[in-house]
Design a protein around this nucleic acid. Structure first.
Length: 270
DNA sequence: CTCCTATCCTGCGAGC
DNA sequence: TGCTCGCAGGATAGGA
């Protein structure tokens, strides 16, 4: 669900809400697990600590204290919000109580999310194999192209592979490949270096633009403030099967790649 | 190794 | 209106 822009928008929202560095006073778990068991004991070692920063890595959030961090992944339907007493909802699984009578709620109907404890991100099994951040200055089109070498899988599946490039999920993969004029079904190894360079440029532009627009709000995504994003209004191909291409007017088509619905224009993308 | 499929879970919209 | 079906922004285990 939330891809890099949505997670970044949530990060910015949480950063604002937690700017005054409140102390974590209580961790209330409504159930013992999401996708995985929640290590309640380890997380509660952070009680009494201040939240000093909110970091995003790939689609993960890290709420840092001096003694370690809480790691949050939103899965498909996860949201964080301020929920004072009386503002509980169905599928609220975690309440973080802070000083100053502040309470954050994590809500996640499908429970594909993750909530874990991290001391050393470089050693955490969920983080250790992640590929480069799209905005990392050291990431070049050539570097990305090299990591696609020998990949028989489709370029669409490859750019969604978090070992190759993080943060790009099903929406932004389709949108960025459209912007770069690359047909998603093409084998990754067959995409030329210059076209991979263009893809990187376009995916950066699109991710940045989406962050500026508050991300894409489909069904229940909202930023921590509760506001919706509006990047979904600018989709050129995603979820537009059979609709006319906004550039050439021909029908957008779709196919399942790697188990995920993929959208493209066979005239604009080769 | 790489690649592909099935799977976790709930809610919602389309179609009848 | 109410039911059933298929699908949804992700990531991983396990099999080929």
């Amino acid at each position: 669900m939330p891809e890099l822009p949505e997670v970044e928008v949530v990060r910015q929202g949480l950063e604002k809400i937690l700017k005054h560095q409140p102390t974590l006073e209580k961790v209330e778990l409504k159930r013992p697990d999401l996708r995985d068991p929640i290590p309640a004991k380890k997380i509660r070692t952070l009680v009494g600590e201040k939240i000093i920063s909110i970091e995003r890595r790939a689609k993960y959030l890290l709420l840092w204290t001096p003694k370690g961090a809480m790691l949050s992944h939103l899965g498909m339907t996860g949201t964080w919000r301020v929920a004072q007493l009386g503002q509980e909802k169905d599928h609220d699984h975690i309440y973080l109580h802070f000083s100053g009578n502040l309470r954050l709620a994590y809500r996640d109907p499908r429970r594909f999310g993750i909530f874990d404890f991290v001391s050393d991100p470089a050693a955490h099994p969920r983080l250790i194999h992640l590929g480069p951040e799209p905005f990392a200055p050291e990431l070049t089109g050539e570097g990305l192209w090299e990591s696609l070498r020998g990949k028989k899988t489709s370029i669409k599946v490859a750019v969604m592979d978090q070992k190759i490039l993080v943060g790009v999920g099903n929406i932004y993969a389709s949108e960025a490949l459209f912007a770069a004029g690359i047909k998603p079904t093409l084998a990754a190894e067959k995409v030329s270096r210059s076209r991979v360079e263009l893809f990187l440029k376009e995916v950066r532009r699109i991710l940045k633009d989406s962050i500026a627009k508050g991300g894409s709000s489909i069904s229940d995504f909202a930023q921590a403030s509760g506001e919706s994003g509006y990047f979904q209004n600018t989709f050129l191909v995603y979820d537009r099967d059979q609709d006319p291409c906004k550039i050439c007017g021909r029908k957008i088509r779709s196919e399942i790649l790697g188990g995920r619905n993929t959208f493209w224009c066979s005239h604009c993308q080769k």
